[in-house]
């Protein structure tokens, strides 16, 4: 009985590892990125080009920035491509990331229904726009998933000066009690809908409920013009420097996680800031509009 079980286990393990070893012959790099990068379609343009040049294939895991950073901390991936600058810098200074390169930026926009019940249209100050929504208690959909977009949204709510509710949850980490905070305006579950999902889902949700939301321009363009049935929401507030959204690429530090493929990750990071990739980024258009602006080379095209 016992030997039978051992045999089954051996077979299972063998079955699982054999394809793994053949895969090892190819160059595969794992990258965690944000749903906004993935949903915008930019990666489908950039990555095949990189693979063609170097033979390195990239497995993309699209998540919220929080989860992507977590992947990096745990050494589950080789490189991360995210947009939450302060957290990225902390990630590098804490020793998880080898370095951070600024690749590009796009911007956030505040979207809402064409009827615009809160009268946001024409407001250039993002915090003022959110304040109007809160005062009218117009439906607002929040990512609520600790992503880069959510981080930005929380910063904007803070800038409105409205009273925010802070909730703390105690958890135990490495034997020590720790507190996890979350902040949101009053009216949770009534007009402020925190749905904890990706950017694309948040857009369709906001459309369904004809609500306001904060989104990155790339994903918005993709959902507005890249689908058969265009998104029924309009940009109501844009152009505020506070809505700036920089993306950084960070290879995982090989001294902390020796198993990561740093050499290839390094190559990808360097490639993304090369004139070629920067030109691809500058030329990437969604429905005739430039979606991302290269940051490494100012006048790339």
């Amino acid at each position: 009985m016992k030997t039978g079980l051992a045999w089954i286990l051996t077979l299972l393990v063998a079955g699982l590892t054999v394809p793994g070893t053949t895969q090892g012959a190819e160059k595969v790099l794992k990258m965690s990125t944000t749903t906004s990068t993935e949903n915008s379609g930019l990666l489908d343009v950039l990555l095949p080009e990189f693979t063609k040049e170097t033979g390195i294939q990239i497995k993309v895991l699209a998540k919220g920035t929080g989860a992507a950073i977590r992947d990096g901390m745990d050494g589950n991936v080789d490189i991360i491509f995210v947009h939450a600058k302060e957290r990225e810098e902390k990630f590098v200074s804490d020793g998880y990331g080898a370095y951070r390169l600024a690749v590009m930026h796009n911007d956030f926009v505040i979207l809402g229904p064409a009827a615009d019940p809160a009268g946001v249209k024409g407001t250039h100050d993002a915090a003022k726009a959110l304040k109007k929504i809160a005062i009218r208690k117009a439906r607002f959909v929040s990512r609520g998933d600790d992503s880069g977009t959510h981080t930005k949204e929380k910063a904007l709510w803070k800038a409105t000066g409205l009273p925010l509710k802070t909730e703390t949850t105690e958890i135990v980490k490495q034997g020590k009690r720790q507190q996890v905070f979350s902040q949101h305006p009053e009216g949770l579950g009534q007009w402020y809908l925190s749905i904890g999902q990706g950017m694309g889902k948040t857009l369709t949700y906001a459309e369904e409920k004809q609500a306001y939301t904060v989104a990155d321009r790339g994903t918005y363009l993709k959902y507005k013009f890249g689908r058969k049935q265009g998104l029924d929401l309009k940009i109501l507030c844009q152009g505020d420097p506070e809505l700036f959204n920089p993306y950084g690429i960070i290879p995982i530090n090989p001294t902390r996680h020796p198993h990561v493929k740093f050499k290839w990750a390094d190559r990808l990071a360097e490639w993304l800031v090369s004139p070629k990739a920067q030109g691809l980024i500058a030329r990437y258009k969604i429905a005739g509009q430039q979606a991302f602006f290269p940051d490494a080379i100012a006048n790339a095209r």
Partner: peptide
């Protein structure tokens, strides 16, 4: 839709915390 305080259930909350890396 996993709306907090409205339709968030134990299973969707777990999926979310996993997504957040918590």
């Amino acid at each position: 839709g996993n709306v907090r305080g409205f339709t968030r259930t134990m299973t969707t909350a777990m999926a979310l915390e996993y997504d957040k890396g918590q």
